[in-house]
Amino acid sequence: MRDRYQIEESASVFSFKPFHPYRSKLKWYGLAIVIFGVLSVFYYASMSKLFLIISATLFVMTVWFFLKEILLYIPLRYIFDRSTNEVYQSSLFLSKRKIMNLDEVVIYQSSEMGSWQYKIGKKKMQFVKSYAISEYFSIKKDNEQVVAYRSEILTKIEQMVTESSLTIPSNSGRSSFNH
């Protein structure tokens, strides 16, 4: 379970990779890319234009989604730091960027058609600028993944957020203590 989200925990820092479980999907993407690639070559050789367009489109789409997963989603890591009262995001291209203060984090559920995920955002603007902190879950209530995610990650974050908002008055971050 800890491997599933690559959880790293110390006295003040809690960090995890929400989309790490998507690695198991990659082989299916690979298979689809090979199939559509071969089909495209086959239809290109046999000069059937309509099927070539269909298979080439599917090929490009699967490559696009594959690259998105591997470059953007899977390397994504969130770092919740108690000692600095900050939340960071690190990705393949940007390492450790501050996204908000820990005490202004709002966690909410965001659903789309057929699936939902947990997101975080700054208080009062959580819908406008939000960060996904879980993979997509199916709409079926209380499946194993959701229960595991809640106990391993969500409760920890919630606990950190309530703790930090108790010690530090909201609307004023850590910076107000520095001068």
Binding site: Y108, S110, S111, E112, F127
Partner: peptide, 17 residues
């Protein structure tokens, strides 16, 4: 208990919230 946001997108464009 909580609030939830539901969004619907068509062809990558959000059409309903």
């Amino acid at each position: 208990q909580r609030f939830e946001l539901f969004t619907m997108s068509n062809n990558f464009i959000k059409t309903n919230a």
